[in-house]
């Protein structure tokens, strides 16, 4: 497997969607190709930092607007 083929399978590799033989081929490629290993590790890190970033509390004014707006519209809908 060359570098281009490894990168094309990168998502499937990260998501664990490859058969054992292809996974082994990619892992063997990493032994010889530090750059592909870096790309895979950095892509995993990229996904991780986005997933680890917890959503912030809504600002009070936004939260109030959302809930008041919902209450008003739901009240209108049920009347």
């Amino acid at each position: 497997m060359n570098c281009d083929e490894v990168i094309r399978e990168l998502s499937n590799f990260i998501d664990g969607e490859l058969d054992a033989a292809t996974k082994h081929e990619i892992e063997s490629h990493f032994v010889e190709c530090h750059e592909c290993k870096l790309v895979v590790d950095q892509t995993k890190m990229t996904i991780k930092v986005f997933c680890d970033c917890e959503p912030v509390e809504l600002p009070g004014d936004l939260r109030n607007r959302l809930h008041e707006g919902l209450r008003r519209k739901l009240r209108e809908a049920t009347q």
Partner: peptide, 20 residues
């Protein structure tokens, strides 16, 4: 979806590179 996800991940990795 798979094709765009791969490209999205690679593009974001590239964008984060300047910080990381």
């Amino acid at each position: 979806v798979k094709s765009r996800l791969l490209r999205a991940r690679l593009k974001l990795r590239q964008k984060l590179d300047r910080y990381f």
